[in-house]
């Protein structure tokens, strides 16, 4: 295979993907307020400021609350939808699944605006709760996509075998289906969590006065003074997501190994 050129290209491409991200730690530890070369020296001051920042902490706990709740809700609802779509035939299946998966192909601004209009019209005050509602809606299609793959790779007769061996429908689900789709559920939780944590537009419009991490970052980017702290925050976020991804990959591989499937790589 003459893949030398292609390999070089792929490596350059990866460099293009990573180069901006590598600036984050570089300037997070740089003793200067302007993001420019040459570097001025090492400091941990920006991290110190970050940790001392009350609003940032509040934004962080808000984001965690939202992401955890939305991931759980989206995954639970996703399990219902994925099982319904992979295991049953019923009238109206295509339009029903179409509607549920619609956020995948709808610009987020439209979801955010239409939800905002309705919430205001109905008189529901904007809060963390309204953000959770919106995030669950947009995470659900991703959860379903992951879970459907997990459910559809199951042999239908596994469930029948458990039933045939004396289990009830529910205990057959609990003893056989659930353990086998568990890697999918973990992936779905992680995916939804990350999407929600990173989501800006819906949080921006539906959170009212409550900050979330992305909306807080957005508000701070106007002030050149707080840019180095944002670089520090960005560094922390990147490290966290790499850790999370590694855990996810570990679970995925374990799931693959345990059920003896062929490893195709990647979660998407």
């Amino acid at each position: 295979m003459k893949s030398g050129g292609l390999r070089l290209y792929a490596i350059l491409y990866l460099a293009f993907l990573y180069a901006p991200i590598l600036l984050l730690p570089l300037f997070a530890f740089n003793d200067g307020t302007i993001i420019a070369f040459p570097l001025k020296g090492f400091t941990t001051e920006w991290f110190g400021q970050m940790i001392a920042n009350q609003t940032l902490r509040r934004a962080f706990t808000n984001s965690l609350t939202i992401a955890l709740t939305a991931a759980l809700l989206a995954t639970c609802l996703g399990i219902f939808a994925a099982r319904a779509s992979t295991r049953f035939n019923f009238p109206g299946k295509t339009p029903a699944m179409g509607l549920i998966m619609l956020p995948l192909v709808l610009p987020e601004i439209i979801v955010a605006m239409s939800l905002l209009v309705v919430l205001l019209a109905v008189g529901i005050p904007l809060s963390i709760f309204t953000v959770i509602l919106g995030h669950t809606l947009i995470c659900m299609p991703y959860a379903i996509a992951i879970l459907s793959t997990a459910f559809s790779s199951l042999d239908k007769s596994l469930e029948e075998a458990a039933y045939d061996l004396g289990e009830t429908k529910w205990s057959a689900f609990r003893l056989v289906i659930l353990p086998l789709v568990m890697p999918g559920i973990v992936s779905s939780l992680l995916m939804s969590f990350t999407i929600s944590l990173d989501e800006f537009i819906i949080a921006f419009f539906l959170a009212g006065n409550e900050p979330t991490l992305p909306t807080y970052i957005f508000s701070q980017l106007r002030f050149p003074k707080s840019v180095p702290v944002m670089m520090a925050l960005g560094t922390v976020l990147v490290v966290l997501s790499v850790l999370l991804l590694t855990v996810a990959e570990y679970f995925r591989r374990r799931g693959v190994a345990r059920t003896g499937q062929k490893d195709h790589g990647g979660f998407l």
Binding site: L14, L17, I21, D198, L221, M230, G234, S241, L245
Partner: peptide, 16 residues
């Protein structure tokens, strides 16, 4: 390797 950048904050990437 290719998916990692996609999982890092979109806002931060734009800001960079």
């Amino acid at each position: 390797l290719i998916t990692i950048p996609f999982w890092t904050s979109y806002l931060i990437r734009v800001f960079l």
